[in-house]
Computed example of a mutant assay.
Amino acid sequence: MSEAPLPDLFPDFETRHIETRSGSLFCRVGGQGQPLLLVHGYPQTHAMWHKVAPELAKRFTLVIPDLPGYGRSSIPPLSDDHAAYSKRAVADALVDLMLSLGHDRFTLVGHDRGARVSYRMALDHPDRLIKVAVLDILPTYDYWRRMDRAFALKIYHWAFLAQPAPFPDNLIAASADYYLDHTLASWTATKDLSAFHPDALAHYHAFFSQPDRIAATCEDYRAGATIDLDHDTADVEARHKIDVPLLALWGGAGIAQSGETPLDVWQRWASDVQGCAIGGGHFMAEENPEELLEKLLPFLKKAA
């Protein structure tokens, strides 16, 4: 990470380091009200929530961590079975985090990889969740099942990042700034970096300049192609469903909207589902924070 201090995007929030079974997790804590856990995705950090956090903090106590291996959180070891980066292991660690902060039940909003952790937590720890929102994803099981030519070209990174270490890790590290900027821009509706505040980009570039963290993010995707898929498949075969209320939101020009309607997919996975598309691409918290809040707040405020 850059030695220069990073811009503080959450000036009214505490900075915490909480020990969990996945190591120390960095997080920001602020606001007032019922606990709300916000979980970022790839290739970002907790900084992605900076545009929506001030409004959410008026109504909720926000806990905004960096995922294991990302940002300023500990980096679990890589392994042949990728278990430390499974969404089950990460969900367990986030439960540890919330319990350490005194929250035995909470609401959860996740984007991208964080949304995969979120629906896994809803399946594994339904007693901990009041409700859950997933932003611009479909379940891992469904992504791999629909991997035809068109979808594979759209999400080529799923197969690339899942290649054995250290192949994708080293290729990305050789030109990390270019790879990061290309990835961020290509998943927006406008295909550029205009949605991202320079201070947020500073956070993303700082963590993505570290080869061990690049390797961790690849391991995240290796888990997605192996152990995460196994966990999803077991739930499908056992006909397990998410019982807590679930909101699915996706970008109209995002990744999840390709092919089958996301709401139709989520209705196979959860018993109480609502959702819709919003304007923009994949990074809705930064591309279209106003509409995201407009759709998210009624769901979050409604009693479960």
Rank of each mutant, 00 (worst) to 15 (best):
Thr183Met: 15
Ala84Asn: 14
Leu38Asp: 00
Gly254Val: 04
Asp81Ala: 12
Pro198Leu: 00
Lys302Trp: 01
Phe299His: 11
Ser74Lys: 08
Ala4Tyr: 01
Pro35Glu: 11
Thr15Met: 03
Asp127Val: 07
Pro198Ala: 03
Arg88Gln: 13
Arg59Ser: 15
Leu293Gln: 13
Val90Glu: 09
Leu300Ala: 10
Pro168Asp: 11
Ala216Pro: 00
Leu94Ile: 08
Ile278Arg: 12
Tyr42Gln: 12
Leu25Thr: 07
His205Lys: 14
Gly251Asp: 02
Gly280Ile: 02
Leu246Thr: 15
Ile130Asp: 14
Trp144Cys: 04
Ala91Asp: 06
Val39Lys: 05
Leu36Trp: 06
Ala303Gly: 11
Gly254Glu: 01
Glu237Tyr: 04
Ser79Glu: 13
Gly71Thr: 01
Ile255His: 00
Trp266Cys: 05
Arg128Gly: 13
Val52Pro: 00
His282Cys: 05
Ala165Ile: 10
Glu219Gly: 10
Leu62Ala: 14
Ala93Ile: 10
Gly259Glu: 11
Arg120His: 09
Trp144Asn: 05
Ser24His: 08
Pro262Gly: 03
Trp187Ile: 01
Gly275His: 07
Gly224Asp: 02
Tyr143Arg: 07
Thr20Leu: 10
Ala122Cys: 08
Asp230Lys: 12
Gly280Leu: 07
Phe196Thr: 08
Ile137Pro: 01
Asn288Met: 06
Pro139Ser: 05
Asp199Gly: 07
Met1Thr: 11
Phe160Cys: 01
His103Tyr: 15
Asp136Arg: 04
Ala159Pro: 00
Ala304Ser: 15
Gln32Leu: 09
Leu247Gln: 13
Trp266His: 03
Gln267Ile: 09
Gly23Glu: 08
Arg16Asn: 04
His157Gln: 11
Asp127Glu: 15
Asp220Arg: 09
Pro5Gly: 03
Asp127Ser: 13
Pro5Ala: 15
Val39Tyr: 02
Ser271Leu: 06
Ser74Thr: 13
Glu287Ile: 07
Asp169Ser: 10
Leu37Gly: 00
Ser186Asp: 12
His125Val: 12
Phe196Arg: 00
His111Thr: 12
Val63Tyr: 01
Leu161Ser: 09
Gly33Met: 14
Gly259Ala: 13
Pro5Ser: 08
Pro262Ile: 00
Thr233Arg: 11
Leu36Gln: 01
Pro168Gly: 02
Tyr221Lys: 10
Val265Gly: 07
Ser118Pro: 13
Phe26Gly: 02
Ser175Thr: 04
Ile242Thr: 10
Arg213Pro: 05
Ala277Glu: 14
Trp269Gln: 01
Thr107Leu: 14
